[in-house]
Nucleic acid binder design. Structure first.
Lengths: 337, 337
DNA sequence: GGATTTCAGTGAAACCTTTCACTTCTGTTG
DNA sequence: CAACAGAAGTGAAAGGTTTCACTGAAATCC
């Protein structure tokens, strides 16, 4: 049971004032060693545990930062989270990982929650547009950094150039001789998806191919199951229009599609070349090792966390910054000639 | 800026007492509709956001439950987390996902953190033994449920029968004619790993094979990189002793090993048959689709959460329970004849 | 040796919510 | 019509921490 022990109890037990106990906890150097030991012993003997809620109440903000991602099931985001967490830990902050699941309502729900908790700051990959809630939170003095998503001057963001990523992927496919290319991804309301598509378009144009060379296949989500379903839709196309290569907006889709393609006894890359995006660890271990656009996941998380700290530490002097990393194409068998 | 608005401000603005504002927030039916609207309007106009810290301080415990897992990068745990989160959400609880990273110190760190936060409850897959801290937390009145790990009568747990899982896997390999089998996994201090190995041993004995038929290869971690390193160690064994099949303690190891095996131009299952564990989504999409022992991940999370709620709701009447699920072998090409 | 600084420690106030015993008022009952 | 019940609303107290202006005592300075 140990009916919650407070600093007052510790103070009484150690024969000092409660202010001294607080000093032992927060500025041990301001307390004489003998007293410090006495207090420490009392803490141990009573099994005192600091009450974070009371602490927060006093401080006005918590020591927790919220990381809102589109899908915890996607290794891209867990790797990102690791980067964030490591950096946050160094400053004594903890991270609460929130899974919006590509759903606006859930995103909103988590934002409210974080607001009520007086989060130290928020890192978010928004499902759609930057919402009024996010603006309200920032106006309330809580730093909000956009992750994996560029932004305008008015807020901090860390992203990878998705347009370039799309271009790299599709230019590579065109270089391999493909003339009919599919773009697989969705929903288009997710910024990264539409940017990657824009990059794909740009590559098609740059190569002098007609608009029709790019077939867009929109998926409901960015997961393996959606990727699997794409097989049917490709098969339904008349052979003359059917892409000979596809660029998937992430590796999960690519792996799903690859699975379905294999099930249909089609060869990759012979019958269909596939490029993914993110270069998650499983991409290299796939049935056919996947060509993929690599993003510096952990650095992305680290950079975002650093921007957040910067803004939190000195909000007055802070200048919003936009950090953009460059993606890199990793070529593997799924697009070999 | 909006210098934090409190219930007092709302009350003043709406021309009611602060008690009424609290009633509007917590028991709207006790307040006359007209008053309710007045208060709601004030809340909106002032942009009032409940301070969760103050709320918690009053309530004595938070509305957050801690889920401590071995590796967020392992899809097994993110699927588990989804199950936990869905169930928690229905009761208005949120989940904070903590990654112990198979490290005792980090585990301890997160437990202290959760203790300071007066977590509503804790779900944990312990790195090693059940520690004094966990016992202390439970004695302090916070429910602790062991996940993916059996236990004695003295605490709640939800697990999958790892011994049976190990038996299934190895019995299957023996059934395919293999006489020299490897067990890959570690560290052995992780309970699931040693249980799976025990199951493997049992299967070897049951088949009347000698102890030496099972070669144990201990890995430092349960991740893809460790799996990749196993290839070297296998290759280093004299051919007569080298296993013709291995059972990996999880799919990450299996995928890593598969990757390395492919790199060495060895065929799976021809030169080496591989069985994994967990049946994560990527197992089916692997270079050679992986035979794996499936665990009911989401149900595991759900059941754990339900036990936790049960214990939290009525600690007096609560009887600790141990729920054990049965694993299932999913056979794919990596062990085909 | 008196004035000043430093050190160690004190305790009240503030942070914001929820609860609960209490007051007022209106409408009902015998 | 007196007595009562129920509904609506009130406001002080409690919950645990940190901060900060403050006191006493010891050490330092000229």
């Amino acid at each position: 049971m140990s009916e919650s022990v407070s600093v007052v109890d510790v103070a009484a037990h150690a024969g000092v004032s409660l202010g001294t106990v607080s000093n032992v906890l927060n500025r041990p150097d301001r307390v004489a060693p003998a007293t410090r030991d006495k207090v420490m012993r009392a803490i141990r003997e009573l099994g005192f545990v600091r009450n974070e809620a009371a602490r927060q109440l006093r401080a006005g903000r918590s020591r927790t930062i919220g990381l809102v991602v589109l899908d915890v099931g996607n290794p891209f985001f867990t790797d990102l989270a690791k980067g964030v967490e490591t950096t946050a830990g160094k400053s004594g902050l903890s991270v609460i990982l929130c899974n919006s699941n590509e759903d606006n309502d859930r995103e909103q729900h988590y934002l409210s929650l974080l607001q009520e908790q007086r989060a130290f700051g928020i890192l978010i990959t928004p499902v759609g547009k930057v919402t009024p809630t996010m603006d309200a939170i920032r106006r309330g003095g809580t730093p909000v950094v956009l992750v994996d998503r560029g932004s305008t001057r008015r807020q901090c963001s860390v992203s990878v150039n998705d347009r370039v990523g799309g271009e790299l992927a599709v230019a590579h496919l065109i270089g391999q001789g493909h003339k009919r290319i599919g773009f697989v991804g969705g929903p288009m309301s997710i910024n990264q998806v539409s940017e990657r598509r824009a990059g794909a378009r740009a590559a098609v144009h740059a190569a002098g191919l007609p608009d029709t060379a790019l077939t867009v296949i929109e998926t409901p989500r960015l997961d393996v199951a959606s990727g699997r379903d794409v097989g049917d839709r490709l098969a339904a196309l008349p052979v003359r229009q059917r892409p000979t290569a596809v660029f998937c907006a992430n590796d999960l889709l690519a792996l799903g599609l690859l699975q379905d393609t294999t099930r249909r006894q089609l060869s990759v890359p012979g019958d269909l070349a596939i490029v993914g995006y993110d270069d998650i660890e499983f991409a290299a271990a796939a049935a056919v090792p996947l060509t993929s656009v690599r993003q510096p996941r952990a650095q992305l998380g680290q950079a975002a966390m650093e921007l957040l700290l910067e803004e939190a530490t000195d909000p007055r002097a802070h200048q919003h910054r936009q950090i953009v990393f460059e993606p890199e194409l990793i070529v593997r068998e799924s697009t070999a000639r």
